[in-house]
Amino acid sequence: MSANRSIRVTAGILITIALVALVGPWISPHDYVTTNFDNPLAPPSLGDMHLFGTDDLGRDLFVRTMLGIRISLLVAIVASFVSLVIGVAYGAIAGFVGGRVDAAMMRFVDTLYALPFIFFVILLMVAFERNFLLIFVAIGAINWLDMARIVRGQTLSLREREFVEAARLTGVSTLRIVFRHIAPNLIGIVIVYVTLTIPQAILVESFLSYLGLGVQEPQTSLGALVEAGVTLMERASWSLLIPATLLALILMCFNFLGDGLRDQFDARNLS
């Protein structure tokens, strides 16, 4: 019951944030690039519609923050999709084939778990001139490990079920069994784990942007806004606190949502 409520509350907050991020910049009289050197570091106010104040160049921080949220969510969705495709394919194959192949594939995942992936992503960003598309792919490529593990576990148990046996007896090929018979049964747990990879993807993206290796000006993301806020915090604490709070809130909501969904899923599977 309480898990159910936490799902509804966190989903509500996330949907609200996403809607405001989509509609807000469109309603606001300001845009994200126009500088106004007569009005730098203005505190948040309703009067001139600078809801979150302005930055050191006089740009409207509300619109910029909303833009940052859009980018963070976009990166999260695309990266989660990449990790979903890799993780499900890898996990399903390992779990279905089983035996030595499974052992080797999972040993490989264990190995990758311990690697400092973020440093590889930074290396990529340095080597390939901060390509935006690359951020998506790189983040997705490092986040598939959990998914692969979960999907493998689930596949191992599905493999023994009668309908898979039946498919095999009628001569359906292994690949077809994996994609047509096993994969659809994985959807529930996959959705749960995607909710948990989204905050990880947001985190990696904002970390890169914070270090100045992610999105480039005048585009922005929550990480880049936090970074800008840090340099201004002594004169304009809101420029740090607002994006920092929003980033924390979004990450927290996704984590609570994923946790709640997992509890529900487990409860349903156990009963």
Partner: peptide, 15 residues
């Protein structure tokens, strides 16, 4: 614990 897991280091540090 949930809060601590969710909030990234680069937010905690400057705040």
């Amino acid at each position: 614990s949930m809060t601590g897991i969710s909030i990234p280091v680069f937010v905690v540090a400057p705040v």
